[in-house]
Design a protein around this nucleic acid. Structure first.
Lengths: 328, 328
DNA sequence: TTGTACGCGTTATCAC
DNA sequence: GTGATAACGCGTACAA
């Protein structure tokens, strides 16, 4: 492995000059530039990034936290983030928290040990008070999820409105018995706000909801199927279901069809995200502008790294849109 | 930011002793261990990983190449790999080549510049001769894709058999006019071998295939729909289609249904992967043991890193399985 | 069992 | 314009 020293020797110059050429500093003669370039080529030299990191105190690496990369919402988010990061010369370290507080805390050490320049959180498992101290070691940007107390840039969607417009749509279609199906994360503002929106629409229409019309713990297609099985057993089931994701909605629709129920006549279902899946299954859903929030979050991250400002709250709120299809 | 020096001073010991405690070396008195631990705690000390990397000449980081993380096959692969890596104390850098030779070559520099200890390739865009030189800088493991000339560990599936059993199944169902629909990658052995298997089954049954029954460039749901539109225009369309992924198959089925065609009566379709999507859309498909190949690839990678052996060919071939549902 | 001293490969700060 | 030299923070022969 050739070092900068070897290049310097071969070129008959000092390390300093070689370093200057590498980093495009001014005040180097064209002639010596050429000399250095030739030597670098001959030795097949590449700067050692560990040494660079140590010297410059930065890693050009960003960690992105997601619950699971197989969730299409998050993989889409990560796809766009990686693209943006690569464009600006940053790498992405992928951290799957698996919905676990402890896993999230483990990954937080990455920032502390200077393995990454910053953190983007797309979900939050721990209380913000557990995360906040890490701001001392580098910037954090929150994307999708949010928290009131976080003094960091936040890019998120108006989930109250999301819950509201979805539910209002169901009500406008004439359904009066509305159920609610979601992954139940105590710490998640996203889930919390959607529920607020749901209840708001219900209230405005003067509708009541039975406790048994609430279904929790639903994240995947499989969970959706399970949800339908539970719903089927009810003596007075809801006519329509608001769900937290297209996967869950798809699972419900599938299980319902398998059981001979007609969608939306016997049961209406609304999804969330507008994934390709939603189109395939003809799901009415709420579209989230994934590319925009991913891009904005990454921009804010890189900005934070460069400006070295770390704790300034800044909210970017983006709109949601109802996509009507055949499941309602 | 506290350094090892600060800890040493506070504990009244030398840096060496502190370092020994951190790295669990023998020959340190219990008493001094405690002294050091206390000092570390008080100063909130964490070893700086850039310095460690430089000193130890290793990064505890592995790069994984995928075409796009939103492709469920690859996101599933990455999910398992990240989990395995985290378990063994490694991080994952995500590299999306976007099916581009140049993008792949750019990422190869990661190994050269010592940003990662090794590379796992799940797809190969460039000729192996372009990749091979990088073996000088660290181990490479190939997973899913393969190449005859690669002197590295390879974990893959018997794609000839995959193409064969899928096609044979279609033939056994009584279809005689079989079409083929795939993403067309010149460099992909996976695609190449599946086609071999397809043709082998056709030959054995004495069947012919028309050129116009071949559809290329299909990767996504959208591409599947496009494929159906093209197929629809044919005066003598195939009765059954072999496809390269569940997404494509789902797109075809959806477009066909929308156009009033009955599946499988008017058109049979077989997918590949057995993604959740396949179950939802009732797709017959070929199951790939994703978790196993991901886990094995990561194990081989870590083994290669630890043993510092870099160029030994080793093949791990895993089986494929037909999953029959309603699309055939 | 502990400490001294050097080197890992770069880059920033000064002198010249 | 160019070159010594001193960090960056850590690990480890070697000596004691």
């Amino acid at each position: 492995m050739a070092t900068i020293q070897d290049v310097a020797k071969l070129a008959g110059l000092s390390r300093t000059t070689v370093s200057r050429v590498i980093n495009q500093h001014p005040y180097v003669t064209e002639e010596k530039k050429r000399l250095v370039s030739n030597a670098m080529q001959e030795l097949n030299y590449v700067p050692n990034s560990s040494a660079r990191r140590l010297r410059r105190q930065q890693t050009e690496t960003i960690a992105v936290y997601v619950p699971r990369i197989t969730n299409p919402f998050f993989s889409h988010l990560v796809e766009v983030m990686e693209k943006e990061a690569a464009k600006k010369g940053y790498q992405l370290i992928l951290c799957q928290t698996r919905y676990k507080k402890e896993q999230e805390r483990n990954f937080l050490e990455l920032l502390k040990t200077k393995q990454v320049d910053g953190l983007i959180l797309t979900s939050i498992e721990n209380d913000w008070s557990k995360i906040e101290p890490y701001l001392a070691y580098g910037p954090i940007v929150v994307c999708n999820e949010y928290s009131d107390s976080a003094q960091v840039p936040l890019v998120f969607l108006d989930q109250i409105k999301g819950g509201y417009i979805g539910t209002k749509h169901l009500i406008e279609q004439g359904y009066t018995k509305l159920g609610y199906c979601t992954g139940d994360h105590k710490s998640s503002r996203v889930a919390h706000d959607r529920r607020i929106g749901f209840l708001k629409a219900l209230n405005e229409a003067g509708l009541q909801m039975k406790d048994e019309w609430y279904f929790g713990g639903a994240y995947s297609v499989q969970d959706g199927k399970r949800t339908f099985e539970a719903l089927k057993k009810l003596s007075d089931p809801p006519q329509a279901l608001f769900t937290g994701s297209d996967e869950v909605a798809a699972g419900i629709v599938k299980a319902a069809s398998d059981a001979g129920w007609k969608v939306p006549e016997d049961l209406a279902v609304i999804g969330f995200d507008n994934q390709p899946l939603a189109e395939l299954m003809e799901l009415t859903t709420i579209e989230q502008p994934i590319e925009t929030i991913a891009r904005q979050a990454m921009e804010l991250m890189i900005e934070s790294i460069k400006s070295k400002r770390t704790s300034v709250r800044k909210e970017v709120i983006l709109p949601l849109k109802l996509i009507q299809r055949c499941s309602t």
